[in-house]
């Protein structure tokens, strides 16, 4: 297809304008302030007074935590969010297939990779867990993507993380394209998906 709507690569690749990347970096990280921040006490609803005192514990979005915690400046210290700690790592290593990754964080893998940048002592174990989890689950995702044609897949995709959902969809599209080719339908000119979706929505609004 020539049309310049290259959907998957831009979704999988992080860049400055990527919506998924912005939403990933919006996930919260538990932080503790090491030095007091004057005049910004209102950011913590439980704080008294106008300043954020040193020692305040707060959940900050990743982009903020990243800016305030680097080798040069340590305004906050960072802890790993719960789904990446020892307890959950054990669950994932026991059987990754049954875990609802979407509940643990819609961008579980991507966010896990971002967390490595803080250089925490357990960063290595987290990356091992991510890799293990992915390779265990990938088999199942591929299997189900290649074997259900025209069925309701929400039960399967509901437990997948955003990256896995993209993979699942790619697999499904491959399967449909293959069936199209098999039944000799691939030369048929079909209406563009955007137009079809648009029409469907209009019909719904009309009812």
């Amino acid at each position: 297809m020539f049309a310049p709507c290259v959907k998957y690569p831009t979704r999988l690749r992080e860049n400055y304008f990527s919506i998924d990347d912005i939403l990933t970096t919006q996930e919260k990280v538990p932080c503790k302030f090491q030095s007091s921040v004057l005049g910004l006490g209102f950011l913590d609803p439980g704080a008294e007074g106008t300043d954020l005192a040193a020692g305040t514990a707060m959940e900050l979005p990743y982009w903020l935590a990243r800016a305030l915690c680097s080798r040069k400046r340590r305004i906050v210290t960072v802890e790993m969010p719960k789904p990446y700690r020892e307890g959950y790592r054990q669950i994932l290593s026991a059987d990754a297939n049954v875990v609802d990754l979407h509940k643990l964080g819609p961008y579980y893998y991507a966010f896990g990779i971002y967390l490595q940048s803080f250089g925490q002592p357990d960063a290595g174990e987290i990356s091992n867990t991510l890799l293990q989890t992915f390779s265990t689950r990938f088999r199942r995702i591929m299997d189900s993507a290649q074997n259900c044609l025209n069925e309701d897949t929400t039960a399967v995709t509901g437990k997948l993380d955003e990256l896995e959902r993209v993979l699942f969809r790619v697999g499904q599209e491959g399967l449909t394209a293959f069936h199209c080719w098999q039944s000799g339908q691939s030369a048929k000119i079909v209406p563009s998906t955007m137009v079809t979706n648009y029409r469907k929505r209009k019909r719904q609004d009309g009812d």
Binding site: I22, S36, L38, L64, A67
Partner: peptide, 21 residues
């Protein structure tokens, strides 16, 4: 005052990124 400046600066850049995106 420096930590506060850092924090606001990060927020500024974040807002800019979101608007452009």
């Amino acid at each position: 005052l420096f930590p506060g400046v850092q924090l606001r600066h990060a927020a500024l850049e974040r807002n800019k990124r979101c608007l452009l995106a």
